[in-house]
Amino acid sequence: MRALFSNEQQRLLAAIWDEEPSVLQQNGFDAQGINIYQRNLLANAQRALSISFPTIFELLDSDISASLVHQFLRSSPPSQGDWGQWGETFTTFLSNHEISEDYPYLPDCAALDWHIHCGLHGKDQTFERPSLQLLSDSEPEYITVIFNQNVKVISSQYPITEILQAHHHSDEIQRKGAMKKAQTALLSIPKEHWTMIYRPEFQPQVTRLSASEGNFMHCLMSGSTLAQALDMVSSDHDFVFEKWLIAAIERNLIYYFSKDKP
């Protein structure tokens, strides 16, 4: 910073951010003008979060979401100059917020929203097919799987895939079906739900995974070798590696197979 702290730029920022009438008076700015900047700030923040976290904004009444945006703006002001990147800590913010006592699935829904949002702008990666040869040439003990960076696997106690689809599926019947499933799951004894985000081309997709698929992928994504991941699901009769591999390639989950640990 080039000048003393109490320069006119800091005075203006303080007037906009502090929202205290006394700060406004001290700083000598026109209240109407400051009010426009405050409204713009809140509107930009609201727009940004509603784009990055569409499910959260569907789940909450507009006055509640507006209040959350306001609180989040105060606790995590933007720092990167790109509203699209603002919101990385929104999931943690929700976890620590009292609203999660009433709606405990909100943080996981937010995490899912955020991964989809990041997937939209993530690097374009397609499977490096020649690396498939490693499966024939090497033992699974020496093979690791490098996933497409837009692939994420989330484990949750809540039916977040169904909650998302209940609000965003393009087909109304599917939406209603997902809503029913989500409601049923929320009323049942909690169990682990695995959700995967992936990007076959440009549009991120979301799907439920079986427990064995979820554990297998999570193990690989944590850097374990193929052998270690296969060991983990060796007693799961519903898991067949060859079947998983074909689907993984079709869905553009794998970037390449590697002989070295990442």
Binding site: Q10, L12, L13, P78
Partner: peptide, 21 residues
């Protein structure tokens, strides 16, 4: 315009095009 400033010791982006003197 200016966009970068400090709030409570933290660098923030104003999220708007703020005028300069």
């Amino acid at each position: 315009c200016f966009t970068w400033g400090q709030q409570q010791g933290q660098l923030i982006h104003s999220g708007d095009l703020l005028p300069i003197a």
